[in-house]
């Protein structure tokens, strides 16, 4: 409960209040999206140790799930969102056999899966269903205020989940699986089941983020919502801040996405250089992220 008061409430309140004093709502919205995605990566990578190199696949699946519900079934957005996110969870279920692979093979196979989904969605042969490469337009349900409010709710739920993982025996079990799946089994943990639950929760977060993103921007192309940058940014932000914590990924997004908006939008290659170098520095010198630095200074970081 302490973490809910200290982290969830202030973060959500900040994003609720800022639109009235700061006019670039799209930027605020994107900050929320990246906090969700970085936390989603945190759930599966930070807690269970599987690096989802195709994480954007869930984001895109959520975006398309939402859009296709709206386009083909005229579903109201608030119904289309959970159903659309369901598409991401189904994709996650399809990919569960990948857990047979260890480390880097899992990551590469996951990346291949995300690219495969993009190829299918953007294939001109499927234009009647997915609109192919020509993209989606949802002008009929365009409602940035309500979409922003919904994003706030998704953000709150995401943070709530991570706080739960940080403080529950389920979260501890996931970390035990990350440290040593064999010992975790001997401790009585159903390794296969718990790992899949974490995976699907992570997929759900990205699916909801993708759905609400589609709603907010309302016009997009397959390459927009399946862009590898979502994966890369989410992973880098989470790694930079510190995995398996609540505040690490938030810190990562605020600092690095802030930096991106300062230097990255006009000259993305300079930002790419910065975060590329950051990743290398992190792996070599600070593998547990910014948070571990704070801990070294004696701060207790949740």
């Amino acid at each position: 409960m302490r973490h809910v008061l200290l982290i969830l409430v202030p973060v959500v309140a900040t994003f609720a209040i800022l639109p009235s004093v700061y006019s670039n709502h799209l930027l605020l919205f994107n900050f929320m999206i990246f906090i969700m995605l970085a936390q989603g990566v945190n759930v599966i990578y930070g807690f269970t140790g599987y690096l989802p190199f195709g994480y954007v696949g869930f984001f895109g699946a959520g975006a398309y799930g939402f859009s296709l519900m709206v386009i083909h079934l005229q579903a109201p957005p608030l119904l289309a969102l959970p159903v659309g996110a369901g598409a991401a969870v189904v994709l996650g279920l399809f990919l569960t056999p990948l857990f047979r692979l260890s480390g880097a093979y899992f990551s590469i196979a996951n990346l291949a899966a995300a690219l495969a989904v993009l190829q299918v969605v953007s294939n001109p042969n499927l234009e009647s269903i997915t609109k192919g490469p020509y993209g989606i337009s949802l002008s009929g349900v365009f409602n940035p205020t309500l979409a922003y409010g919904t994003a706030l709710a998704v953000l709150a739920a995401t943070l709530g989940l991570v706080i739960y993982l940080r403080n529950s025996r389920f979260g501890m079990a996931l970390q035990a699986i990350r440290e040593d799946p064999i010992s975790a089994g001997m401790a009585g943990i159903n390794v296969v089941r718990e790992r899949i639950i974490a995976w699907l929760l992570s997929a759900l977060i990205a699916g909801l983020a993708g759905g609400v993103f589609a709603w907010y921007v309302s016009v997009f192309y397959p390459e927009t919502v399946f862009s590898g940058e979502f994966t890369i940014f989410a992973i880098v932000f989470a790694l930079f801040g510190g995995n398996a914590t609540v505040v690490g990924p938030i810190l990562g997004v605020v600092i690095l996405y802030g930096l991106y908006n300062a230097v990255g939008i006009s000259t993305p290659q300079y930002f790419q250089l910065i975060y590329g170098a950051l990743i290398m520095g992190l792996v070599l010198f600070l593998p547990n992220g910014l948070v571990s630095l704070l801990r070294r200074w004696g701060l207790n970081v949740p």
């Binding site: 025996r169 501890m172 079990a173 970390q175 035990a176 440290e179 040593d180 064999i182 010992s183 975790a184 001997m186 401790a187 009585g188 943990i189």
Partner: peptide, 19 residues
């Protein structure tokens, strides 16, 4: 094969919780 990043107490607590 302990859970290296968890504390000694957490190592045992998990087994009590799930065992």
């Amino acid at each position: 094969r302990p859970f290296l990043t968890l504390t000694v107490r957490e190592n045992v607590d998990i087994a009590i919780a799930y065992g």
